[in-house]
Nucleic acid binder design. Structure first.
Lengths: 142, 142
DNA sequence: GTAATTGCAAATACTTTGCCACGTA
DNA sequence: TACGTGGCAAAGTATTTGCAATTAC
């Protein structure tokens, strides 16, 4: 099994969650796909379809979100997106407003300083940020 | 009438939209409130409730979004948020994950350089970004 | 007068919950 | 065994559309 999947399962177990087939398949899917996915996408993905109900995937994502294993993102679509959180890794995204494609941005995130500044000035706790770039990808621009 | 509201109405007119009571009240509400609002919030706000149907507000927001007068934001809540776009002005937001409060951040946005870099490297067109900070506000942290 | 806009009601889409059966620890 | 998890079905919330009536220009 993929090392990241195994590590993530460990984090879940440490959080008091039981190791289930649905959990394994869902995390494996998120790791393999390597981009935020919707509940519907996950529930219909090869590893999960026929494997468990959409409600199960929903509640699993809910628990994973509570434990800080995944994060729920609002990316303009009507459906919510869920992304795996990997300790020490931060990701920003580039999204095509035409075809909806989503890719992670390689460049280092330029927001950490401002984030620290905000934390100090406002007294907010557990601060994190979400940064997305939207536009029309070359393919859709034609 | 507020100058920004008047200017914005002009922009709408230039875009081919008709000047209606609903438009005036909606824009005035967005300007006064000065933060992103949901469809439900807008439809139930003092200036719009009893003034027009929620479907009307929905379609109005839809047209304003097409014309680039407002922008639809995905901010984690189930409902979409709509923010007035003012030419030459850019806003990032600070959001409390407990109480849902939303405020604009004063500090200059540190993302423009990266945005230019992405535009050049990826060939994306009409690029813009959305940056939000999430955390627990001092009041909710107790 | 003509085309954009609106209201109302109905249809969608996505999310969330209840309840009991099941599987993991 | 005990409690977290799962399946199925139903309910809830937000969004979107059809169509006839109205209004801005």
């Amino acid at each position: 099994m993929n090392a990241l999947v195994a590590e993530t399962i460990d984090r879940c177990r440490s959080g008091g969650m039981r190791r289930t087939k649905a959990m394994e398949q869902l995390l494996a899917t998120l790791v393999e796909t390597d981009r935020p996915m919707t509940l519907a996408e996950l529930a219909e993905s090869p590893r999960l379809t026929d494997q468990c109900d959409k409600a199960t995937v929903f509640r699993l994502l809910q628990r994973l979100t509570e434990k800080g294993i995944v994060r729920r993102l609002g990316l303009h679509e009507r459906a919510a997106y869920f992304a795996l959180l990997v300790p020490g890794r931060h990701r920003d995204y580039l999204i095509c407003t035409e075809c909806g494609s989503i890719e992670a941005i390689k460049a280092p995130c330029p927001v950490h300083e401002l984030e620290n500044e905000i934390r100090e000035k406002t007294g907010f706790r557990d601060l994190y940020h979400e940064l997305e770039f939207f536009g029309t990808c070359p393919r859709c621009a034609g």
